[in-house]
Amino acid sequence: MKTKKEIVAIVVLYNPDDKVYRTIKEYENLVNRVILVDNSLQSNGTKFKDLNFVKYIPLFQNKGIAYALNKGIKESNEKYILTMDQDSHIKGSLINAYLSFLNKNDEKKIGALTCQYNTDRNAKKPRTGFEKVKLSMQSGTLFKRDTFNKIGYFNEQLFLDGVDYEYFLRMNQADLQLIRINPAVLDHQPATTRILKLGFGKLKYGIASPVRYYYQARNLLWTAKKYKDPKLYFILTVKLLKIVILFDNKKRYLRAFNQGIKDANYNKLGKYTYKN
């Protein structure tokens, strides 16, 4: 019988504020413990010192999402690893849905369980059943420790965006399944939402900094080429069209995006220092 005592949550922090503290407090009694890996330049450990279920690891520099996740995974020993962003809100129903599936199904060929993502741009509600999917996001996904033992850790050279896509494609290549548990829903906040009014309707879309679009362009193209995945090429095209059609400061975004494409073609990865 699998229980929450077999689950560790790894949360990557970056300049956490009091709101993040309240988010971390929500994990109490939902998992065995929480490991916070902080990419901030300074320690923020005092913010979480009263949470006895938390282990805090400061890095004193931004080493990227992949490095931070890997650090947390290596510092833990639980059988299952829930990876989370600092602004994703966990619920007991998410953990219960995962445990219910694990206790009723053979997990031999499964690499990870993922969820539906409820955002202000795309509302989702719990549904019945589960299904095999190829791609998802790492925040809110429950990985088996055996998966990391079999195919390795997250690719630290990608640094930021696309780390999850690369890992899930590597899982797929190794014949390890990614299963979406439809009753599991995570409240998630990717990027900043903007609204464009169109007649009687409106279009909601996400926007982030130019450097994020550098990483998205570079890592999507590099991963698409490596795994020959057409969906990533489609996502890359959509992101480019968003810049051209919807964004202000198009030149800045296009310059970052094009640099990402160039670096992907030359296999130039790692941390990027963006210049305006």
Rank of each mutant, 00 (worst) to 15 (best):
A184W: 01
S88P: 00
K250M: 12
V211M: 02
I65E: 01
K19M: 03
Y98P: 05
T193L: 15
G206Y: 02
R33P: 01
A66C: 09
D17W: 07
T83Q: 00
N39G: 08
E26Y: 10
A264I: 13
K134R: 14
V185S: 01
D106F: 02
Y215R: 00
R212C: 02
G162R: 10
N15L: 12
K47A: 06
L135M: 12
E131C: 13
K19H: 13
T273Y: 07
K134V: 15
K108R: 10
K268Y: 02
V163T: 15
A224G: 09
P126T: 09
N52S: 09
D248Y: 05
L176I: 10
A68Q: 05
I24S: 00
P126H: 04
R127T: 12
I243L: 14
L142N: 01
K239I: 00
E75V: 03
F53M: 03
G64Q: 09
Y27I: 05
A123W: 04
T237H: 15
A224V: 14
L158D: 07
N258I: 02
S209K: 15
H89V: 01
D106M: 03
E131G: 08
A217N: 02
D187E: 15
Y213G: 00
A112T: 01
V34H: 09
Y67H: 11
L94C: 08
R127I: 10
D120T: 03
L30K: 15
P126G: 11
L158Q: 10
E166H: 12
D229S: 09
R170L: 14
S43M: 12
V163Y: 03
M1Q: 07
Y167E: 06
Y215C: 02
T237C: 10
N77A: 08
L82Y: 06
L51T: 11
Y214I: 00
Y272E: 02
G199M: 12
Q157Y: 13
V238S: 13
D50F: 14
N96W: 01
Y21A: 05
T119K: 11
T141Y: 05
L176C: 13
S139N: 13
N70W: 06
R127L: 14
L59A: 06
D120C: 03
D50G: 06
Y266S: 10
Q189A: 07
Q116S: 15
K74Y: 10
T192L: 15
I7C: 07
L13I: 03
I95N: 03
F60W: 12
L240E: 08
P210E: 08
N249T: 09
Y214E: 00
L221W: 10
T192R: 15
S139L: 11
E26M: 12
L269N: 06
N62C: 08
R255K: 14
A217I: 01
R121T: 04
Q86W: 00
K71D: 06
I10S: 02
A112Y: 01
G45S: 12
I24H: 04
W222K: 04
D248E: 07
F101W: 08
A264T: 06
I261Y: 15
Y266W: 04
K250N: 11
I24D: 02
N15G: 05
R212E: 02
D146Q: 13
N105W: 01
R212P: 01
P183Q: 04
N105H: 07
K228T: 09
R145M: 09
L94S: 08
V211F: 01
S76Y: 04
A208W: 00
S209H: 13
T141N: 11
D263F: 15
K275W: 10
K250E: 13
L158I: 15
K144C: 07
N32R: 11
Y27E: 00
Y214F: 12
T147D: 09
